[in-house]
Amino acid sequence: MTITLIRPATAPEDLAAVRELCWDYRSHLSSVSPVDAELTETFYPVPKYTALIDTLETLHARPQGIILLAELDGQPVGCGMSHALFPDTSEIKRLYVTQQARGHGIARKLVTALVDQARIDGFSRVVLDTSVSLGPARALYASMGFDQRGPYQDIPAAALPHLLFFEATL
């Protein structure tokens, strides 16, 4: 029997696993298409991404954010995190499930847990963005009641045709 567990990443070993998953996520995004590789380098060049990953627990600290770790049969296979973008808005970031763990509903469980936590924390909406190239992610968000919307923060005009923005009202 396969056992999936979604839990807050708070221990040093949990955060180390999340950091490794975030680097895998960056590599995955860079491999999706040449456009996605360019977007990844534009938004997250290695020095900037390194600084971001090194400060995850500050950027997504409770009570206005959370870092979640997904395990499949005791092995880290996914992560997702949120933070307060605006006083009423939680933003989901770096939602990722490894290739070998896909098909177990882990991404859906991560999104559900992040949305539930945002609701508990008093936010009235959740936003996120994804690449146009990530069809399964787009389908997941739409199936979970997220509506497409325009950008919710400043995005370079050249990137806009390659990104989609979603929002869910809580």
Results as ranks from 00 to 15, higher is better:
Phe123Asp: 10
Ile66Gly: 06
His28Gln: 02
Arg19Gly: 14
Pro8His: 05
Arg119His: 11
Ile92Leu: 09
Phe166Gly: 00
Ile155Tyr: 04
Phe166Arg: 00
Leu69Cys: 03
Ala17Thr: 08
Tyr49His: 13
Gly78Ile: 13
Gln117Gly: 07
Ala168Gly: 08
Lys93Leu: 02
Ile66Leu: 14
Leu114Met: 10
Tyr49Ala: 13
Ala159Ile: 07
Arg19Tyr: 02
Thr10Met: 07
Ile67His: 04
Leu134Cys: 00
Val127Ile: 15
Ala168Thr: 13
Thr89Val: 12
Glu13Ile: 11
Asp24Tyr: 01
Asp73Met: 03
Leu29Arg: 11
Arg149Tyr: 03
Asp54Pro: 08
Pro151Gly: 02
Ala142Cys: 07
Gly74Leu: 15
Thr42Phe: 12
Glu20Arg: 14
Gly74His: 14
Val32Gly: 01
Val126Lys: 12
Gln153Lys: 08
Asp116Phe: 07
Asp36Gln: 09
Pro34Ile: 12
Asp129Leu: 08
His83Leu: 14
Val77Thr: 10
Gly122Val: 10
Thr50Arg: 15
Asp147Gly: 06
Thr4Gly: 00
Arg19Trp: 03
Thr89Trp: 08
Gln100Phe: 01
Ile53Trp: 03
Gly150Arg: 04
Arg19Asn: 06
Arg7Met: 08
Cys22Leu: 09
Ser31Arg: 06
Ala113Asp: 11
Cys79Asn: 11
Asp154Ser: 12
Met81Gly: 08
Thr42Ala: 12
Ser82Glu: 01
Thr40Pro: 01
Gly103Arg: 02
His28Tyr: 06
Leu85Trp: 09
Gly105Ala: 00
Thr2Asn: 13
His104Lys: 03
Glu57Pro: 05
Val32Gln: 01
Glu57Ala: 14
Arg7Phe: 01
Gln100Val: 06
Glu38Phe: 14
Lys48Gly: 09
Phe165Tyr: 10
Thr130Asp: 03
Val126Glu: 12
Thr58Ala: 15
Pro87Phe: 09
Met81Asn: 04
Cys22Tyr: 02
Gln117Asn: 12
Arg149Ile: 14
Leu72Asn: 06
Arg119Ala: 12
Asp129Ile: 07
Leu128Ala: 05
Arg138Trp: 00
Arg62Cys: 06
Thr89Gln: 05
Asp147Arg: 11
